[in-house]
Nucleic acid binder design. Structure first.
Lengths: 204, 204
DNA sequence: ACCTGAACACCGTTCAAGT
DNA sequence: ACCTGAACACCGTTCAAGT
């Protein structure tokens, strides 16, 4: 398990192969199949392990909102630290929508909802909305995004392209191009949570 | 392009291979590489084509909220119709966060925001939040989910498992197990949008 | 310009055989 | 019980050679 995560961290999604893993563990490829049913199960277990690690360090937030933000940011940071997680999180959740990953995220994000004043009957819809936002955001944001210096040029290119769109066909995207160039992912991520939370409290 | 989507629709993600496609087109595998750089580009183009198809039929909503809901549901239904799209949408967006898919969704969902009363300076954050919710929800929800009859047992199993969780460790998830069993994906999807929209109007 | 199809360097998985 | 490693049935991609 640890060796699998190591390989993924070192060289990305493509690096976790049966051959690479068995070499790293100084064993034969057949040996791996004695401990795990399939390569996908191993990958799912790796994802679960990393998510569990990110979400179990539960901080005692000052407010329920803080607790939700802390849990969400813990996941966000885990994806930033393990870039392969962005794609794999999405893959696992698509493949197994009610699996262990979903459970962990629901539990971490949903628990503070009672204290926010959400009626018990609305716990599921409310938590779902938060979880979906959170997963969508980490999927797009924290994944392949290159670091620091690279990042500026990266966003510049996208923003420039959007800036030159036909205003007739893509008026909205064109209008926000500058905001895209100047935004900060993590800040934006939190703003999104706050927006959803405002919808929640407005309803509750 | 059409042949690629056909293959995906018929037999899922795994069915789109160079060999299968070249056989379907009664040609050699090399011929495909004369028209496309790589298999991934082809897949990306397939995703873009389906998303474009889903989002261009723009309904003239009675209210901006209706327009947003309509665009979101168009995407939701496209994923339901092409189950492989759930995973591929996520994959493409992870791989190319500011690519054509993102652009299409932003444009469709963001355009009505002005009419909702969102300040121009907040268009990007606001649209991002909507888009992330929407992508997260379709990723988890509309993908592998089996149809009708199957679906009941599918959710029952998950709900039953959650029902038997240790209340000390997973109090929240355990508490919502029943709601999971009885929920309707599409309805829940719209409720989530409404929740986010409430956050938006509460801010604007 | 466009296509052919064998060849190459990979995959995941299986399984007789070993200890 | 656990491991070995060759073998199998696949992949995507390349490239000399054809039309």
């Amino acid at each position: 398990m640890a060796a699998a995560v190591e390989l993924l961290d070192e060289a990305g999604e493509g690096a976790l192969t049966v051959r690479a893993l068995s070499e790293r563990l100084s064993t034969g490829s057949g040996a791996i199949y004695h401990h795990v049913g399939t390569m996908n199960e191993l990958l799912a277990a790796a994802v679960d392990a990393v998510v569990a690690d990110a979400l179990t360090a539960r901080p005692t937030g000052r407010s329920p909102g803080d607790e939700i933000r802390a849990a969400a940011l813990a996941l966000f940071d885990a994806v930033a630290e393990h870039p392969w997680l962005a794609g794999q999180l999405a893959t696992q959740i698509t493949r197994n929508p009610w699996g262990p990953v979903t459970l962990r995220v629901f539990e971490a994000v949903g628990r503070p909802l009672e204290a926010v004043g959400v009626a018990r009957a609305k716990w599921f819809v409310t938590a779902s909305t938060l979880v979906h936002y959170l997963l969508g955001a980490t999927t797009q944001t924290a994944g392949g995004a290159p670091e620091a210096a690279d990042r500026a040029g990266f966003l510049d290119t996208a923003a420039a392209a959007w800036h030159h769109l036909d205003p007739g066909e893509h008026p909205f995207t064109r209008a926000i191009a500058d905001q895209v160039r100047d935004h900060d992912d993590r800040e934006q991520f939190v703003s999104g949570i706050d927006l959803v939370l405002r919808g929640i409290t407005a309803t509750a």
